[in-house]
Design a protein around this nucleic acid. Structure first.
Lengths: 226, 226
DNA sequence: TTACTTTATTAAAATTTCCTGAAATGGAAT
DNA sequence: ATTCCATTTCAGGAAATTTTAATAAAGTAA
């Protein structure tokens, strides 16, 4: 987890950085707006801790810029006790939380954790494999940019494959993942064949290759065919 | 503007009340949880100032209850300097701001003002999706400019959809949002189907499209149909 | 090749999920 | 007590998906 601390008070910044590093974050420090802009432009941080009052301007500006750039970073505002208006504007601009100076380091930590957790929850990243992009949370799939409609079993099957690319996947493990362990293993795997066939057809009919390679007598592999 | 102060320290309460009255607010006072519950049930306040530690329980409980009742009141938590966890829980529950004891009366005033201002700002805000306009606070909906009368459940359902457009919404999350987590999940979702049907009918009969796309076996999506 | 096993394809059956209309329930107002 | 209205429940049937079963094709080893 990468954090950028934007803070001009040197001693406060140092103790904060030390504490956050100890908590397991990778931290960087910008001591004014100029530095902050440079860093925020170059790197992506999970969370920015932004002091509002900086020597060369207001921290609100950088928040505004980030939001215009549709950044996904979490933002926590640091402001002085009496700067209520700044906090309100900050939240209206799109900051996630604020903390009042002077603050408890453990409280800052709690908020950073909360913000990052919330961000990750709705960022819900996609998984990409060659021409396929799959979003497990929205249950969306696209091949070559065209969206593809899959049934539940087909989707689960594809997700299992794409989560374990280039690896041998036995029919037993597929059965276990898609149907749970209450499956009767004496059964045949006809149902897997059915769904596999449908999945392959849907993917190839949208211009995707047949990524599902059959390993005779064992199972399958999800690979990019040469 | 009506304010309810929930505070058990008598002298602190008295000075606070006097100050706020002078600032032009109409104030009431509850000195314990029991009184607070009675008052909060009878009247609607623009802002509640809630001390967390009360003789007969935690102020967090009343906040929780208000939120369950979907109260629109602004809430400011009052807590001791070292009660970091209380403040965090309070914000998580849905309080708008907090202030640390002992506090400046002018700061309290500033926060009350900010909370009320933000609340009014939200109240003016309508959410628009294609031909639908919905105002969560006035609980008004219109389709194609014509106002639409919805029952409570229908409204909550539509609000939940329109607040999460183009995203997958499971039946489970609908149940949780509209009926709370004390729902028996073994139950069927028949009641969702019922309200859904009525909502769809009302919207389409006013010239709106069927924005509610069903994702078979998973849930729904609120989208603008092509 | 031949015999055998495993996988693929297909279509039909079985099941699940969803929609609909109507009836039952329950609370609030008259 | 009666009426009204929102909400929930129930039963039917429609639609989509999953599973079954039968057959075809492909791979493996002798």
């Amino acid at each position: 987890m990468n954090i950028l601390l934007i803070e001009d008070e040197i001693s406060l910044a140092e103790t904060t950085l030390k504490y956050l590093e100890k908590e397991g974050y990778h931290c960087e420090w910008a001591k004014n707006l100029k530095e902050a802009n440079e860093k925020a432009w170059l790197y992506t941080y999970d969370c920015l801790i932004v002091d509002i009052t900086l020597p060369d301007g207001s921290g609100l500006d950088i928040i505004k810029k980030l939001k215009e750039r549709k950044s996904r970073s979490g933002i926590i505002i640091v402001s002085a006790r009496n700067a209520v208006q700044d906090r309100i504007s900050g939240l209206e601009i799109g900051a996630d939380d604020y903390i009042i100076k002077p603050f408890d380091l453990s409280e800052l930590n709690a908020r950073v954790k909360a913000v990052i957790r919330r961000r990750n929850f709705d960022a819900q990243n996609e998984i990409t494999f060659d021409k396929i992009v799959i979003n497990p949370y929205e249950r969306l799939v696209s091949v070559n940019g065209e969206s593809l409609s899959l049934t539940k079993k087909e989707f689960d099957l594809l997700l299992y494959f794409i989560s374990n690319p280039n690896r041998l996947i036995t029919k037993e493990s597929i059965a276990e993942h898609l149907w749970g362990d209450n499956m009767d293993m004496a059964d045949s795997y006809d149902f897997i064949y059915s769904h596999l066939k449908n999945l392959r057809k849907k993917i190839t009919s949208q211009g995707g290759d047949d990524y599902i390679q059959t390993i005779y007598g064992i199972g399958y592999k999800f690979v990019k065919p040469s």
